[in-house]
Design a protein around this nucleic acid. Structure first.
Length: 558
RNA sequence: GCGCCCGUAGCUCAGCUGGAUAGAGCAACGGACUUCUAAUCCGUAGGCCGCAGGUUCGAAUCCUGCCGGGCGUACCA
């Protein structure tokens, strides 16, 4: 919030320089304001002078001294004395800004007044965004990889909501294809097996224990009445119902809810599949070869064309995916975010090409591809396979670590990175676990505030407290960190990067724990106590808001 | 072979649209509980940012090539 004010200042300054003919308009927007890494370089720094000097050199061919430009800028800034304690030109031409302590202290009343809405966008931006994630076909329980995706998708959604978007969460699935047929056959085989009837288990069938559970339910409901049924449908449907129920129960445990489940089937029923093919055909982008229908993806920069309808007459996955995305466009979203596992990378260019071919703007689609999760136990990698069912499910993991730990662990890495999930660390609930570090900070603060309430402190309003007493370096650092929170949320939302919130919370908790061990909140000094209690309140609010933003709990006691 | 992602401290990873002297946690070592929760804190040590070039005032960050790991490269999804 302070940074924004500084940026506005600098923008004005820039304009005034243009008016006076000191430099030209071209350098606007391309300079940066950032927090320097090292102490002594101020609270903020800008490379503005160097950027201007570079631009001027390019435009006029004459050498311009960045430090000279910096000095001119500083002169133009002179009348903002209420913000700055000191402004210095340093190094090759950086301008370092040292803010007055009162600037930082002033964030506290804002935080306390906003409370749980601190960090949320002040107003809705009237933009609708669709987030598609999980989208696992109902062939078995959610695996760890799905878990990462579920948590990532839900948290991205929460971030976007915090940034003022209207968000819809959607789950796309297919209960028609080959996979589901094999699932039905697997169920039938188990059903017959349990009835002591001859059964042939499909070669590539689903071997998980859960298939037996489904078969048992079927026997409980229908006895052996299905023993001679040739159709696989009743088995498939039973399995689908049971598995979806299971998946939803798992998602529920993680606090994840979808606004819509979109069945691929409806794309066929409503004619969208045929329609897409016709649309592509009309543009001359499909052709027949070897009895299959091909989409000219080479026209969109790919190295080979792709089959969209097999010689058997069945579409490949690409076609419904394209049709589905076209339906999303028709629904009129401003932004569509897809979250896929890295194994789906091949579909992305095809879908985007299809969308562009049909005349839509594919830049409104952002695909987050997350890398795989490697599960580590006792320092060794656990190999997993869905079909053979030797994988750890999200449910099993939740039994061991609970939703808070799981969410945090899945968000600790950026999506691009492979994520190493250390089962020992996550399940031990040891003190090394960073989840507790942050939550403990919140609980500790809540405890202090309880204590203060018991002693009848904290009666007054924040406007009665003398926040000017918060002058310790640790206090100033905490205030700065708090002030940075709203911009961080907006940036993390914009970049779809929840891991930044995770890192921020660890850092903020660290600042607090460190401060706690050095200074006392409650002391003989009544005025100082009041000021520090408000600081504690501000900290508690931000830690709590951050945790909840990640879908976690912020405990008052631990 | 081709495409995408990754390569940063012993391990797991941050590093915002290029910025000043590269960071955190864990592990290692040494300290701190008559004090608001020790699930905490303080200190020490640890680095040719995979390698080689290039772009420029300035590169972990951008470009090219190579090396190593992952995922794709289906008329599977």
């Amino acid at each position: 919030m302070i940074k924004k004010r500084l940026e506005e200042c600098l923008d004005q300054c820039f304009s005034r320089g243009v008016e006076r003919g000191l430099w030209s308009e071209t350098a606007r927007e391309s300079y940066a304001v950032e927090v320097p890494k090292h102490e002594g370089q101020g609270d903020y720094a800008t490379n503005m002078a160097m950027v201007i000097a570079g631009q001027e050199k390019k435009a006029t061919g004459k050498k311009v001294n960045p430090r000279q430009v910096a000095k001119q800028l500083v002169e133009l800034l002179a009348d903002h004395g209420e913000l700055f304690a000191e402004i210095a030109v340093a190094g090759p031409g950086f301008i370092n800004f040292f803010m007055k302590p009162a600037v930082w202290q002033a964030v506290l009343p804002v935080v306390c007044a906003a409370n749980e809405s601190f960090g949320l966008a002040a107003e809705k931006n009237n933009k609708r965004v669709l987030v598609e994630f999980v989208s696992a076909n109902p062939t078995g329980p959610l695996s760890i990889g799905h878990g990462r995706q579920a948590v990532l998708g839900d948290t991205v959604s929460r971030l976007l909501e915090a940034a003022g978007y209207e968000v819809e969460r959607e789950y796309y699935y297919n209960d028609a294809g080959r996979q589901m047929r094999v699932l039905g056959e697997s169920t039938r085989a188990r059903y017959l097996e349990l009835l002591d009837l001859p059964a042939e288990f499909p070669e590539d069938g689903y071997q998980g224990e859960y298939i037996y559970d489904i078969a048992r339910e079927l026997i409980a409901e229908k006895g052996d009445s299905l023993r001679d049924v040739v159709e696989v449908t009743p088995f498939k449907e039973q399995a689908e119902r049971a598995i979806f129920k299971d998946i939803n129960a798992t998602l529920e445990r993680l606090g994840i809810h979808f606004d819509r489940y979109y069945n691929e089937h409806s794309l066929y029923e409503e004619g969208h599949i045929d329609d897409v093919v016709a649309g592509l055909r009309a543009k001359g982008l499909v052709y027949e070869k070897d009895k299959a229908v091909w989409f000219k993806t080479t026209e969109f920069g790919q190295n080979q064309d792709r089959v969209i309808i097999k010689s058997s007459g069945e579409p490949t996955y690409r076609l419904p995916d394209i049709a589905y995305h076209r339906e999303k466009f028709k629904r009129g979203y401003d932004w569509m975010v897809d979250i896929f596992g890295a194994d789906h990378i091949a579909t992305v260019p095809d879908v985007l090409a299809g969308i562009r071919a049909l005349g839509y703007d594919d830049s409104r689609v952002t695909v987050i591809l997350h890398q795989f999760v490697t599960l580590m136990r006792d320092g060794k990698q656990v190999k997993m396979s869905t079909r053979k069912a030797n994988f750890i499910t999200v449910d099993e993991l939740l039994d061991e670590v609970g939703p808070d730990v799981m969410r945090f662990f899945f968000l600790m890495r950026k999506a691009d990175s492979q994520l190493e999930f250390d089962l020992n660390l996550a399940t031990e609930q040891s003190r090394d676990n960073p989840v507790f570090y942050v939550q403990y900070g919140h609980a500790r603060l809540a405890s202090i505030i309880r204590k203060a309430d018991e002693q009848g402190l904290r009666a007054g309003k924040i406007s009665d407290a003398d926040l000017g007493l918060l002058v310790e370096p640790e206090e100033e650092n905490i205030l700065k960190a708090i002030a940075a929170y709203p911009a961080l949320v907006q940036q993390a939302a914009h970049d779809l990067e929840p891991h930044r919130i995770v890192f921020y919370l660890q850092e903020l908790a660290g600042l607090f724990h460190s401060y706690y061990n050095k200074h006392r909140f409650i002391s003989e000094d009544r005025e100082l106590t009041m000021a520090r209690l408000w600081l504690g309140q501000g900290l508690r609010i931000v830690l709590g808001n951050g945790l909840r933003l990640l879908g976690m709990t912020a405990p008052d006691k631990m």
